[in-house]
Design a protein around this nucleic acid. Structure first.
Lengths: 233, 233
DNA sequence: AAATCCCTTCGATGCAGAACGAACTGTAAT
DNA sequence: ATTACAGTTCGTTCTGCATCGAAGGGATTT
């Protein structure tokens, strides 16, 4: 049975987010990969015992899930909603250094990076703008409606039979660009296809990605994107 | 060489969200309207002193903004991004999965409502504009000067002998319209008269009001107001 | 078997902050 | 002028919890 219209318990999640050690761990997890207890302890700058307590708390708040493998425990974000919530949180959360400086400093932040399981950053924003300009996507009251097009196939996207029903493409706010890019199953397919084809490679330990020559050419050909303007490396 | 940590400080916002009293207040504010300290204290179930501390904390986290007006302090969400973040948070937060949080979209908030003891909302704003256009009110350095007129009588307003002495009509900022409407004794008389005559009725629970047929006709006749344009119910 | 490593549990410590009563400031009503 | 009311400040109490040292389990290696 459900209780009568009670207020959402923001405080339970907020409690989990209220400690700097825990949020440092979450930032580490935002690339969608799994990290061990020890790695996250090191990222947060605390001992393993303390990390254990933190990770249990994050688990109880359903922000992460843990998987035991041998003597290690792999932790990852519980689901995409958690990642989206964190991205939205980043829009309003103050940063250790200045936001504006971050954006302008070339190369300090990866121009191409992943956001949980999909592309983010200027490249993702530019691609999304192309999708919208070509009528492949339409923004409809805060959601993305997907229209068929040969570009999807070239990007490795398999469209579902029934378009427009489920959230196949979701708008996701990029916190450095403050513009929309595509998440959801569509965004996920685009990234995994790009990684398979060697269009880009994951950097060490972070969400950064490196766009390769073939990737540059592929995006130029499929979407007429001039990646040289975006990534001045 | 690792650059200095530039991770977003999720914990600062999380800290603000970590207390149930504060999140109850935020839930109350999610309709986009402004509430006083006391109202929020009551919504959170704490005393006024405690609410003061909470509200200051929320201000420092840039989640809300406060504006002093008279002896009251009106608090509202700082911006649209905060509302979006809270909505995204509601997706994660327990016990919120079914009840979609009511955030202000166009026309979602009562078009006719009360603000303590006087009318507010688009209807009140439209009436005030009529008062000004007909010369019944004049804005003088931030205050309303009242001029005599037969409309006042028809609206149930008894003017005091000495006009202009004390603030008989005060300008009151409507938070959703961002325009002025009339408070003070004059606004109070208008509302109580309208309720007496059955021009409108109080809704359950909130400050919402329902404009009745006779009320619609009365306002049409007295002020030439077309209420149909305002209230699309 | 012993050694090593990852993680957890337990206990102690110390700090942060949520709550309210009492008292105070300033504004509005009568 | 007096009263009532909204909000704040201060001091106190009490609970929660982040942290680490020490010690214990379980898995893998030597």
């Amino acid at each position: 049975m459900m209780t009568a219209a009670k207020t959402p318990r923001f405080d339970i999640v907020g409690q989990a987010l209220s400690d700097a050690s825990r949020t440092r761990m979450l930032c580490e997890l935002m690339d969608g990969r799994a990290y061990t207890n020890k790695e996250l302890a090191s990222a947060a700058g605390v001992t393993a015992q303390t990390a254990t307590a933190h990770l249990r708390l994050l688990q109880n708040a359903d922000l992460i899930v843990a998987e035991k493998r041998g003597r290690c425990v792999f932790n990852r974000l519980a689901n995409e909603e958690v990642a989206r919530m964190l991205e939205q949180l980043a829009v309003i959360a103050p940063s250790s250094s200045l936001h504006h400086v971050q954006r302008r400093k070339a190369g300090e932040i990866a121009q191409v990076r992943s956001c949980y399981d999909h592309l983010a950053g200027p490249l993702a924003v530019a691609m999304t703008e192309q999708f919208l300009a070509r009528g492949l996507l339409r923004e409809e009251n805060g959601a993305f409606a997907v229209r068929p097009g040969e570009e999807w196939q070239k990007l490795g996207v398999t469209l579902p039979q029934k378009l427009g029903r489920q959230p196949f493409a979701r708008p996701c706010m990029d916190w450095t660009e403050r513009k929309l890019h595509v998440s959801g199953p569509l965004g996920k397919q685009v990234l995994s296809h790009a990684l398979e084809r060697g269009w880009m490679q994951r950097n060490t330990h972070k969400r950064g990605l490196t766009l390769t020559g073939p990737g540059r050419r592929a995006l130029q050909e499929i979407l007429d994107l001039n990646c040289g303007e975006l990534i001045n490396a």
